[in-house]
Design a protein around this nucleic acid. Structure first.
Lengths: 206, 206
DNA sequence: GTCTATACGCAGATAGAC
DNA sequence: GTCTATCTGCGTATAGAC
């Protein structure tokens, strides 16, 4: 479980602290000093465990993406007997939103990266996620074709969906100012999940 | 018109180039050298026109927000005789999306800022936009109460909406990788606008 | 594995010539 | 208004002691 607060080794502790720093301040806004200070060691010691700052960043991302993939895979596979159409989508959607709510650092990490023009990741995040995207598009094509979901353009629908979901958890600071209350309070998160489900049902349930 | 490519003074040229740099690479990822080089002057000359890097950033933001406010104000006010319910919302929505499509730098600028933990802006962007947000909430309350729009939680609706819209234009680079084509091509933008309108109509039209 | 010391460059900002 | 020169601090990364 990559996303808990405890570290079993210095290497793990570095990754944990680096994830926090990178997600809050981005790649350029984070220094090896920041990471080292959070761990309680010196800058040079961080570079004993990783060859460079970029290597730390890439390791953080690798861990995060692997963890995310596992969760979604499990959620998609776990359907019961009457798991189809809106029922299935609603279940996966709810799992996904809850996971994002539990892992806001991941969301902010991805956002920083997808916003960046030149990347420090070594590969293109969009391209890397394309197979996932295609899987989702195929799913919607099938369900809409069979009349189990109302017809919309699947690609556009997914883009709207991930925007509506990720936004909330990436822009927590902004929303705090906008709403005048804590968007990550438990009841606020529950309300958000409910709203996302309602909105998608209104648009998709046949 | 603040968002065109021509600069009538060095100060304007600095703001223009700074907006490009900040929106692509964020505050920390942009140096005064980058800005100066884009303008064709030296670092010290930039600091003749602005007292500090933060001052440049704030001036860029001030200009962008003022321009945005003007456009929305005009769009909201410009209704014809049968301008109410979904018709009105659809019109304002379309204007807003088109403006974002024309000003992706603004979108990325706001995104960087709302993502940042500690800001270089000097004020809280969320708080500054709260009056706008409240105005929109009141509008939805009125329309939904009168039965001219389907009932949803207005706050949640607006959060979903701005997420679905802003995402597309802020994550252009990411989407290029994800879709395997240019999301800012004219027909792609038209398709996006159409999809947003369809999706909102499906959820909101009574 | 962690440390200090050090190399080296680039950052933001200021002083002063032209 | 723009420049060069300079100050000062922090950045990444490496060498080598313990």
């Amino acid at each position: 479980m990559a996303y808990d607060g405890e570290a079993s080794s210095t290497r793990e502790a570095i990754l944990l602290e680096a994830r926090r720093c990178f997600s809050d301040h981005g790649y350029e806004g984070t220094s090896l000093n920041d990471i080292a200070a959070g761990v309680g060691i010196r800058r040079a010691s961080v570079l004993h465990h990783f060859p460079s700052k970029e290597a730390v960043y890439q390791a953080v991302f690798e861990q995060a993406l692997a963890d995310w993939g596992d969760r979604i895979d499990r959620a998609v596979a776990h359907g019961g007997p009457d798991d189809e159409g809106w029922t299935h989508l609603d279940r996966v959607l709810t799992v996904a939103v809850r996971w994002f709510a539990d892992n806001p650092e991941f969301v902010r990490l991805v956002r920083h990266e997808s916003l960046a023009a030149g990347t420090h990741l070594g590969f293109d995040l969009g391209e890397a996620l394309r197979p996932w995207f295609q899987r989702a598009v195929n799913y919607f094509d099938r369900e809409m074709g069979a009349g189990r979901l109302r017809k919309h353009d699947p690609e556009q629908l997914i883009i709207s969906g991930y925007g509506a979901i990720l936004n909330y958890f990436s822009d927590v600071h902004f929303l705090h100012g906008l709403l005048g209350r804590d968007p990550m309070a438990e009841e606020a998160i529950e309300a958000r999940i409910q709203a996302i489900r309602d909105f998608f049902r209104a648009a998709l349930e046949p």
